[in-house]
């Protein structure tokens, strides 16, 4: 299974914004996404928003990236078209299944 379009978009933005190699950008985003308990295959824009503002700044500063705040602000605003593609392609997250299993009625 391939990674979510939101994950791919975030990697591209980081690759260009930080001047990193594709491998380095993907590795960093993958690490942060996993640290947040998320899956690169099902990553959604709302999740990237939280990660970009709360986890990525520390990671990027520790790697000597400049203008971290501007880069993270850009990463937190995933375009609607990318999110729509992620929504259409993403497999159902188990959390959604377990939400439904306890729904009253």
């Amino acid at each position: 299974m391939t990674e979510s379009p939101v994950f791919e978009w975030a990697c591209t933005i980081l690759e260009h914004g930080a001047g990193w190699s594709r491998l380095q950008a993907r590795g960093t985003v993958r690490l942060v996404v996993r640290d947040a308990g998320l899956d690169p295959r099902t990553l959604r824009a709302s999740q990237l928003h939280v990660i970009a503002l709360r986890l990525l700044p520390k990671e990027l500063r520790s790697r000597g990236v400049e203008e971290v705040d501007a880069l993270c602000a850009a990463l937190s605003e995933c375009p609607g078209t990318v999110e729509a593609e992620a929504k259409a392609r993403a497999p159902v997250d188990p959390e959604e299944v377990f939400k439904r299993l306890g729904r009253p009625g």
Partner: peptide, 16 residues
């Protein structure tokens, strides 16, 4: 994994 998401407000507590 859901516990880590909960700490960021990214998970539903009853589902977790």
């Amino acid at each position: 994994r859901l516990r880590r998401r909960l700490a960021l407000g990214l998970a539903d507590a009853p589902a977790a």
